[in-house]
Design a protein around this nucleic acid. Sequence first.
DNA 1: ATGGTACTTATGTAGTACATAATATTTAAT
DNA 2: ATTAAATATTATGTACTACATAAGTACCAT
Lengths: 231, 231
Amino acid sequence: MKGDQDLYTLQPIASLTMADQVEAQLHEYIIKRAIRPGDAIPKEQELADALGVSRNVVREALSRLRMLGLIDSKKKRGMILTRPDVMKGLERILHPAILDEQVRKQLFELRLVLEVGLGDLIFARKTEVHLKKLDAIVERERKATTQIEKIRCELDFHSTLYEMAGNDTLKRFQTILLPVFEYVVEYESKLQHTSVGSVTHADLVKILYSNNAEEFPNAMRKHLSPHFQHL
Amino acid sequence: MKGDQDLYTLQPIASLTMADQVEAQLHEYIIKRAIRPGDAIPKEQELADALGVSRNVVREALSRLRMLGLIDSKKKRGMILTRPDVMKGLERILHPAILDEQVRKQLFELRLVLEVGLGDLIFARKTEVHLKKLDAIVERERKATTQIEKIRCELDFHSTLYEMAGNDTLKRFQTILLPVFEYVVEYESKLQHTSVGSVTHADLVKILYSNNAEEFPNAMRKHLSPHFQHL
DNA sequence: ATGGTACTTATGTAGTACATAATATTTAAT
DNA sequence: ATTAAATATTATGTACTACATAAGTACCAT
């Protein structure tokens, strides 16, 4: 058709609801004014009046910010800004069942990337206690008879690595991603027998006992190599 | 009304609002029923009646889910489930100014982890076009005179690496994290002159031209070593 | 001062009414 | 009869009011 090119100039109609706009404005308000956690923000009715919308709309916008952990509200105290919880939004969405197949795959790749790169944080912060814990898991895995027990050890081992990294945000991220991983692992196991990588958990622990951070990334790459094959 | 209750039995009161509970229930409803994107969900009034709350409350809950990208709503068509946008919630929160200092630091560490571990995805998906693009950036950087131009090249280079990984979720994640990085880099630059790592961008490109994925993680570690020192 | 009482205030919830836009239905026109 | 226009229908979006509830505040009595 002739007019097709012209169509590109058309932008998707904004069609933002009032609540959307109010949310955006409040967000900007918070950021621009550099409001510190603990500070109070205007009352709902004041905001409604100032913005020229109904309190209802303001509440919808505030409800979203509250969900994100940006604000907290008490009955009479009004609303105060809180330290936003970075991972809160992710928690609600990252449920394997409602994720696109492709996104699931991408999140799984993200996990591989994280674990390969995790080395330096671990080496910087590992303690004897951590290493002993890994030893125990490896030992438990060696004795494990059932498949379920082995999988549990697998999860424990890698979770402990994230713990050792001493980065709460990262650890939390991993926890949120866990169900996605399980989902993908199950899918992979149907695809082919997940051969164990040439580097075992025991090998990884040995490297961690040494102080040779250089070896870690490639060791982990080899450990995860069965998964990398699916790229 | 009656006498006082035993204080020991008092638990940290949850004090969930109706909207909170409705949100949780709707969330569960969506997941349990395995509703596929495109499917319709009941009307607001129906939900309100079924849950025994006012439509107002239902709307607050729906508003949150809509913000997360879980549902979409058109005027008459009702509401339909959509593919949730994994990163949407993060986008709104990850503004450096409102983040805890510690969280900022942790996110910056996350970036280091990501880039060190990024190698295998890049090697699996890199193309000639990508490599040429990196060449161009390195060349631009070599000729750069101002500090600003150099920093821009720095950002472009690393952004391109994420692009090469061919993982949209990951790329998006990096884009969202960018402002946080800038914030931290500025902070670091005050702390001490950010000496360039012993491995340059040109060195990294050379490795990417070769097909030796083994070298990448440690090369990147050395490249980023000035940042790692702040651990 | 201490403790209680009543008052005040801001959020939370309910309910009604209407605007708006998209669909469905009916009517009109060629 | 098929198409086009007008109309009715319906679900979301917005506004407004009213009241419940909890958390401060002030005031009072002992």
